[in-house]
Every structure is written in structure tokens, then in C-alpha cells.
Design a protein around this nucleic acid. Structure first.
Lengths: 333, 333
DNA sequence: TTGAAAGCGTTACCAT
DNA sequence: ATGGTAACGCTTTCAA
């Protein structure tokens, strides 16, 4: 049997309550007593049972990450960003990766909350925008932080970048380089950032006095294959774009693949820009990116807000505009 | 307060022990009684507390995934592969992603085991080969399954593909196409599969009566950047290879990038082959692969073995040899 | 087939 | 500053 709090109290010659105090860093323990207890804990190799602490105390020392259909780089970034802080807080990370959408989810969330009573929850799109899920979280009084929320940003602590401004900036940059026909690949419809990025693109065109050609706006689903397909549709137009702005990095990689397939030189024949949400661009295909804001940074900030019980409100994390050789003036090659 | 087992027992007019029996699917409950209890549980929306069950019963309804420095696709594949079975078994997945190596890890494992007493553990390389970790697991009597173990394969239940045979097959295929100078990018040294794949490559050369030129064997670290660097070194040789076999998919992608940078046509000027451990090749850059065995499949099989308390022993999962247009006869373009 | 009561290892409340 | 003792919600004997 593993040593428990009772063994420690006996070894240290104190009551179990005092051991508990030391364990939880409570006040009103004489330094000498504390030292004695700590020595006993170390000597016996005592590790408190998470189950018992959870049952008695309410804290479960676990936080849950909830995401739906996360791409590899997105998931990796999230976990990388959360890991450090969780370790520092002595908290374990439960990963809930769903592949469903919709309301059945809130049922599952309620279950999870009752079963695990996690100390906190991190939500990513599109789950971050499911009202029933938020309701369940609030009903259970469980702290949660949303990443890139699309609705009611003031409802909880949340982090995001200003997607509309970023998309506007990228589009503006392309226009500034002389591009007049700029293709756009929209992201998955149930993600709010898709609309925000589209809005920024449209805004920039309007600001520049350019008309919007709806042919140039193609639907994608945030993954490589759909980006490639969207690019193919764009490049097959009678009057194809000289530049393509994909609103996610996976899709931008797909656009690049489509260009390579057609033996187009990039950026000579086609300029490509994208969002580097997940660090994909930096690690797998360096010359892709324009807006850089790795999800890991957002996740780290989210963990910070969670553990510090931050007030509700949306924190905008600054993004970085990186200009690489994939975006050039038309006809530059 | 959430409803507990007592509320249910009262509502159903039975003792809490009977509710517990229903909860755990034990025998000796009259169907009528069982139905009554289940109805009450449903009506009250009863969810048993994981903490209480863990404390009283020993089962924690959690399994831990332990990995060190997993790449994005690897991590994603693991989680995707484990998810389904975990959900089916009503078990949560704790992700332990370390970025350290060595023995301090076994200390942490011991802690984790005592604190969480997970129902099972999944180990990936290189943690799967740390004896102290295995010792700790066995001392705690915790079932565990290893993925791609490099040492003592009979020590626990484990899954892997026959890496050596696969590497031999790929190399043989390239030789069969007429290649005589075939570059090889070795994986991270602390991963046993690296040596297995290298052995297969060397074997195939020997079988074909070709000498081994050590210039053609370059070190990589399983990631994109190191694959690109290794390819650059290979292509800068006075007598560069006509084909490159990278022993992981991230590195193969790096080799492809290096080829693109140099405006080499693939497979015209350079043939490329790789392992598709993580489904990267299929999802991000289709024409890369040769050995296909997504980690998700291995993970799924590992979960199966874990939940079925499989006997110790290594299960070889068959791999698939996929020939794509990236491997061509030398000078084909 | 069912039930009563004794744990499981902590934390919380109330004394001292 | 420290110590009893009662929860916490379930599982597990042991009876019936």
C-alpha cells in the first residue's frame, strides 16, 4: 500500500490536519513543524491521492481541453501552450477531442463536469461558441477560458487576435503591391474567425475602391485538401487571380501545392499569403505566411487567464505581419 | 448539489449497494430492479463522481498517454487513434507530453502513478524504452502498452511495424528501379526505430551487392528542418544521390522542400521515398510516401490491447507499401 | 437477490 | 498554531 497522510502524521508526530495544512500551503503552521512534516513526506515518498483530494476538497487538479476536429498543428500548439503552466500548477490536462458538432455536445459537457469537476476548462472554436456548453459551464460554476470566440466575447475570459484587422492588413499589402485580382479562400463556416477574416478581406478591397468579384471567393474547410481544391477552382477561372489569400495555414499549404502541380512559380506567377495559426508555415513550409500568431501563444495566454481567475473579457493578443517572398508584385518573375 | 447515489437509491426504493451494482453491471440484480434503478438514474440525471469511484474502487477511469517531444502529426494520430476506444470504455485520456529525456522522467512517472493511479498507460518512443519507467509501471501494477518499443519487446504488450523489413523493401524497390546512389536520412538517435530503419536500408544495399557510401547516410532528427538540412548536404555532394530515402515523413517533406528550392523536378531529377508514420504524407503532401502505417492505427491497436489486458508480447501490425510517382527510374524526366 | 455498515484518503468545521 | 471528527460519494465485505 502507498503511504498516506496518516503515515506521515505519525512519522512527523503531528495530526493529519497539520499535514494537510502543509500540503496545501495554508497559514498557521510553525516553520519548525512545517519542516518536520516536509521531511517526513520526503522520507516516506508521500504523494497525496488525487482521488481523495478531489472527493474531499472539490479541486480535482485537472483541467479539460475541449476541441472539435482539431488539425494536427492546432492540437499540437494547444497542448504545447498549455503544458508548461499546467505542470507548474501541478494540474493534469484532460484532452477532449470531439469529432461531432452541435448540441449533443453540451450533454456530454454536463456529464464531464459532474464526473470530473475539472478545475477549469479551455474551449476552442467552434465549441467556444455553443451557448448550451457555456450555460453548462456556468451552471456548474466551472471557470473557463475561450480561445478565439465568435460570439458574446464579454461573456467569459477569452483570448484572440484581431482577425478582421489582420486580414485587412494582408489584403491591403497585396493591393499595395499592385495586385488587382486577389483570390480568397474562406474557412469553415461554423468558425467565427472565417467570417471575421472574410470581412477584413472585403473591407480592404472596398477601401481600395476595388470591386468584389464573388468568383474570387472560394469556400474551404480549414484543411489542406480543401485549400488545394479551392485554389484549383480559382486558377481555372477565365480571368484567374494573380494572388491568393488563404484564411488558414493548412489551406495556404494546399494553395501552394496546387500552384506547384501546375508548375507555377511562386511568387512569380502566383503570390500566396495566409494565416499562420498553427506554426505550420514556420515548421513545414516556411515561405507561406503572412499573419503569424501561433495557437500555442494563445493557449499559453488562455492558461494564464484560467489559473489567475481572470475577469470576463476578450484579450486581444497582438499578431505579427510577416512579409515573405511568397507575396510579390504581379509579373515579378 | 449534484444528485448522488443515495438520491437514486431513495428514488428507486433500493439500497445504495444495489444502485452500485447496476452502475457496475454486476450480476445478481433482478431485471425489474435494474430497470427501476436505471429509470431513477435517468430521471435524476445521475452521474457518478469519478473521484469517489476512484477513491473507493481503485479504478480511476483515466488512462495516461506518455510521450516526449511528439511532432504535431504524431500527437494528433495518437489522440485520434485512442479517442474512440476511450470513449467507448468511458475512460478519459490524460496527455503527458514531456520535453525532457532521461531518468528524471521515471521519478515523475512514479508520482503520476501514485497520484492518479491510472487504469492504464500508453507509452511511445523513446519513453517506451526507459527501463526505470517500465519498472515503475510494473511496481505499481499498472497495465501498460508500448508503441514501437526498441528494447525487450517481450516485456509488455506492445505494437509496432516491422521497420527493418519495410526499410529493406523500400530500398530494394529503389534499387530495382535502377538507382545506385541512394541517400538515407537517419532519424533521432534515441529512437530505436531509427536504427531498425537504417539496418533495413543497409541490408538491402548489401543484398544487391552495392557498397555502402557513408557520405550518403546523413543524420536527421525526425523533423522537417533537419530533413531539409540533410537533403542539402546530400545534394551538395560531388556525386549526389539520384534518390533519397528519408526515414520519417516529416524529414521526407523536408527533403522535398530542399528539392523544390533547388528547382529540381521530383521525381525527374530526384526520387524521394519515406515512411508515413503520421499520415502527414497523405494529408499534406500526397506524393511523398512509400511505407504507410499511420500512427493512429498503432494507437488504436494499443488501446485495444490495453483494455483487453492482453498478454505481454509484440504484435506486428502490417504495413502497406505505397508506390507513388515520387519514385522513378533515374533520369526519367 | 438484496442490504447494512465499514472503509478509501483527503479536506472542512469547530474546538482548543 | 494545532487537533478531533465529520463529511465527500462511492465500493466492498459480510450478512440475510
Amino acid at each position: 500500500m502507498a503511504t498516506n497522510i496518516k503515515d506521515v502524521s505519525r512519522a512527523a508526530g503531528v495530526s493529519i490536519k497539520t499535514v494537510s495544512r502543509v500540503l496545501n500551503n495554508e497559514r498557521y503552521v510553525r516553520p519548525a513543524t512545517r519542516a518536520r512534516v516536509e521531511e517526513a513526506m520526503a522520507r516516506l515518498g508521500f504523494r497525496p491521492s488525487a482521488a481523495a483530494r478531489a472527493l474531499a476538497g472539490g479541486r480535482s487538479f485537472q483541467i479539460a481541453l475541449m476541441c472539435s476536429n482539431p488539425g494536427p498543428y492546432y492540437l499540437h500548439g494547444l497542448i504545447a501552450g498549455l503544458r508548461g503552466r499546467c505542470a507548474a500548477e501541478g494540474v493534469r490536462l484532460i484532452v477532449h477531442a470531439y469529432d461531432i458538432e452541435g448540441t449533443e455536445l453540451s450533454e456530454d459537457v454536463r456529464d464531464m463536469l459532474r464526473q470530473l469537476s475539472p478545475d477549469g476548462v479551455i474551449l476552442t472554436p467552434p465549441i467556444a461558441d455553443l451557448e448550451p456548453v457555456l450555460d453548462a459551464l456556468e451552471a456548474a460554476n466551472t471557470p473557463y477560458v475561450r480561445i478565439s470566440p465568435g460570439i458574446s466575447p464579454g461573456r467569459s475570459a477569452a483570448v484572440a487576435i484581431d482577425n478582421e484587422a489582420a486580414a485587412r492588413a494582408v489584403t491591403g499589402m497585396m493591393i499595395g503591391l499592385g495586385h488587382r485580382r486577389i483570390g480568397f479562400v474562406v474557412g469553415h463556416r461554423s468558425y467565427a474567425v472565417s467570417n471575421q477574416r472574410l470581412a477584413g478581406y472585403l473591407d480592404a478591397l472596398r477601401d481600395a475602391g476595388l470591386g468584389v468579384d464573388l468568383e474570387l471567393v472560394q469556400q474551404g474547410w480549414f484543411d489542406f485538401a480543401s485549400g488545394q481544391a479551392a485554389a484549383d477552382r480559382l486558377l481555372d477561372l477565365r480571368d484567374p487571380p494573380t494572388a491568393v489569400f488563404a484564411s488558414s495555414d493548412d489551406m495556404a499549404a494546399g494553395v501552394l501545392a496546387a500552384a506547384h502541380r501546375r508548375r507555377l512559380s511562386v511568387p512569380g506567377d502566383l503570390s500566396i499569403a495566409g494565416f499562420d495559426d498553427t506554426d505550420l508555415a514556420r515548421s513545414v513550409w516556411p515561405p507561406l505566411t503572412t499573419v503569424r500568431q501561433p495557437i500555442a501563444v494563445l493557449a499559453e495566454r488562455a492558461a494564464e487567464l484560467l489559473f489567475e481567475r481572470a475577469e470576463p473579457g476578450l484579450r486581444l493578443v497582438p499578431y505579427e505581419l510577416v512579409r515573405r517572398e511568397t507575396v510579390a508584385a504581379p509579373g515579378a518573375c
